[in-house]
């Protein structure tokens, strides 16, 4: 309980800081004035500049974090995450492809399609007849799918004229610049629906965490339950990618980080703290990317890359000590 409170307070503080800090610095009083009266610099910042950006970051971070935690529980492996296994790269690829081919479809739909196809490929390609599929094989195959998706994205980038290519490049890094209320509505509505869907499946996930045999013994249709959970998790990641680009490492970090932050033991608590931590990390990363160098806006993905890569290395050395890799 105290852990959850800490996370909420941190989220509140990060959100406030992200709204206040920037080229134009605002006091809480000015923000409040803008919120209550709809006038003054506070209203402008809240309504068009930082408000949508921060809310998009919160939503995208939350869905990515939840998606990562779902995969980690499903595979019972801390390295299983949509950003490691190529699902976010697949989601990014379809959006770049639509830009390059001149298609105008809604980004969430495109991202969902790309993510699902990538996931399907990972499942199909890591199966071999007569063998059980170890999670590590799936992770490796997923890495390969991610490599191919990134290669195809860079291939498509060469087709775009220069300014468009630079913009697409920035988007592929994961960026929250110039978001508007459509993005906010998209990620929050889709995210809320998918979160509800995920929470409804938690009992099945809890059974799966006991091991497949035990879950089957409890009367669970293991294959179907896994498929539904993985599908939900892929869609959650795609909802995040559609508004923020394939931001790296949020999904990988949020689950373990959230569990440590809140000390949550039970599945529901772990999932919610992963979502909260994802939101926290993305808002802070975006703020850091904006504030790191005056006058220059780095994409948030650069910051999560700088944070996440050392985390992944540390994680690997931990796994090594436990002898699990």
């Amino acid at each position: 309980m105290r852990g959850a409170l800490t996370l909420c307070l941190l989220l509140l503080a990060a959100t406030l800081a992200a709204l206040m800090l920037g080229p134009v610095r605002l006091s809480p009083a000015l923000l409040w004035q803008g919120l209550s009266s709809g006038e003054g610099p506070g209203a402008l910042v809240l309504g068009t500049i930082r408000g949508p950006r921060v809310l998009t970051a919160l939503g995208a971070g939350a869905v990515l974090g939840l998606s990562g935690a779902l995969f980690q529980a499903l595979f019972r492996n801390p390295l299983a995450a949509p950003d490691i296994m190529g699902f976010t790269a697949g989601a990014g690829l379809t959006i770049i492809a639509a830009i390059a081919l001149g298609l105008t479809l809604p980004p969430p739909l495109l991202a969902a399609g790309g993510g699902l196809v990538a996931a399907l490929l990972v499942v199909l390609l890591s199966q071999r007849r007569g063998h059980a599929t170890p999670p590590l094989t799936m992770i490796l195959v997923g890495l390969g799918i991610g490599f191919i998706a990134s290669a195809l994205s860079s291939f498509l980038l060469t087709l775009l004229p220069h300014p468009q290519a630079a913009e697409a490049q920035r988007w592929l890094t994961g960026s929250l610049a110039a978001r508007d209320w459509t993005h906010v509505a998209q990620v929050w509505l889709i995210g809320a629906a998918l979160t509800a869907l995920a929470l409804a499946q938690l009992r099945r996930l809890a059974a799966l965490e006991l091991g497949e045999d035990l879950a089957a013994g409890l009367g669970l249709r293991v294959g179907r339950a896994r498929l539904a959970l993985a599908g939900t998790a892929v869609l959650l990641a795609a909802a995040g990618v559609a508004v923020a680009g394939p931001v790296p490492f949020i999904a990988l970090m949020s689950g373990p980080l959230g569990a440590r932050l809140t000390g949550a033991q039970r599945l529901q608590g772990r999932m919610l703290s992963a979502a909260g931590t994802g939101a926290l990390v993305l808002v802070v990363a975006d703020l850091a990317a904006r504030a790191a160098l005056p006058g220059i806006q780095l994409p948030a993905g650069v910051m999560t890359g700088l944070l996440g890569a050392p985390y992944l290395l540390w994680r690997l050395s931990r796994e090594m000590e436990k002898g699990e890799l």
Partner: peptide, 18 residues
């Protein structure tokens, strides 16, 4: 990368890391 990505998959499939 476009040629090598599928090769990576082919090798990864054959490995049984566990």
């Amino acid at each position: 990368a476009l040629i090598g990505g599928p090769v990576f998959l082919w090798v990864a499939r054959r490995l049984r890391p566990g």
